[in-house]
């Protein structure tokens, strides 16, 4: 009787072990399959569009008339690029300077304040950033445009870029702080002992060492900014045009998808056009993401 219960115990343990291992393996396979499922799903959905238009035509044509079956994504792609790169241009110096300050100069109490600030900034939902953009940045940009003698409603590329810049700052900043923290302290000690000033050490030793990390943090910032939807959609104006200045309204790709989901099914090919937009987002974002990670891995081995 006793041996039976021991046997039972063993069987139960093995069973539990095998069951949990089985479930874990399922989760593991799910994660491995997920990017491919997404990619194939988007490709299948947008393949209808490829039947009637060539890829070049889709990307470089600027005629957007869904009702007559003309889908040129050029205005949207250009808007997305404008918004993304202006936001990176704003966020990059701020993040770099702050990261250097926090890792090299700042006193303890500054760090204690900044850590929750970065965390909260990273946690604020994008729709809140959008509301903030409408309340504060839109009137501000409208006024700034007045200084340059440009009339603007304030709903413009620049507004979207400013809001986006604030959104990606915590993301990029966290990576940069990590990059500067991992530089071995001996490196700066050696430089200081040779008579370099602190700033010279930072400029010529630390930043050179951190260079690949800095570039890839900006790359990751680009990938984050490119796909951001709601906040940008709320402030960027959403006019289908190729913007000629930063005070003009734009219409980035994510906004295109988000704005048109309601009428997606009533117009032929429209849903596959929107899926194609999602596909472009997927490809560009994943490209920047992987590229940046590759740079980090590749150069970390070298230096």
């Amino acid at each position: 009787m006793r041996s039976f219960s021991i046997l039972n115990f063993k069987v139960r343990r093995t069973l539990r072990e095998n069951l949990s291992a089985f479930w874990m393996k399922c989760c593991y396979l799910l994660i491995l399959a997920m990017p491919f499922i997404l990619l194939i799903g988007l490709l299948l959905k947008s393949s209808l569009l490829f039947g009637e238009h060539s890829l070049m035509e889709l990307i470089f044509s600027s005629e957007w008339k869904p009702l007559s079956g003309k889908f040129g994504f050029f205005p949207f792609i250009i808007s997305s690029l404008w918004v993304t790169f202006i936001s990176i241009a704003i966020a990059a110096p701020v993040c770099l300077l702050t990261a250097i300050y926090l890792t090299q100069y700042a006193k303890r109490f500054v760090l204690k304040i900044m850590q929750p600030v970065i965390d909260i900034l990273a946690g604020i939902p994008s729709v809140i950033y959008g509301v903030w953009g409408i309340i504060i940045i839109v009137p501000f940009v409208s006024k700034v445009a007045g200084w340059f003698n440009v009339s603007s409603s304030g709903y413009s590329i620049l507004t979207g870029a400013i809001v986006l810049a604030v959104m990606i700052i915590p993301f990029v900043l966290n990576i940069l702080i990590e990059v500067y923290k991992t530089i071995p302290i001996e490196l700066s000690e050696a430089s200081l002992s040779l008579g370099a000033t602190k700033w010279e050490t930072i400029k010529k030793v630390l930043t050179r060492k951190a260079y690949p990390g800095i570039i890839s943090s900006f790359g990751l910032g680009v990938s984050r900014a490119f796909g951001e939807t709601i906040a940008v959609l709320m402030v960027v104006g959403n006019v289908v045009q190729i913007p000629s200045g930063i005070f003009q309204a734009g219409y980035p790709l994510p906004a295109l998808i988000a704005n048109n989901y309601g009428e997606m099914l009533s117009i032929p090919l429209y849903d596959s056009a929107l899926m194609f937009a999602a596909l472009i987002l997927f490809v560009v974002v994943t490209f920047f993401n992987m590229g940046s990670r590759y740079i980090i891995m590749h150069y970390e081995k070298k230096i």
């Binding site: 990017p35 997404l38 799903g41 988007l42 990751l220 990938s223 984050r224 490119f226 796909g227 951001e228 939807t229 994510p254 998808i257 988000a258 929107l274 899926m275 999602a278 987002l281 997927f282 974002v285 994943t286 993401n289």
Partner: peptide, 10 residues
């Protein structure tokens, strides 16, 4: 890294 709008569309 994939934007949430892509998940939404998918």
């Amino acid at each position: 890294g994939i934007p949430s709008i892509v998940y939404g569309a998918f």
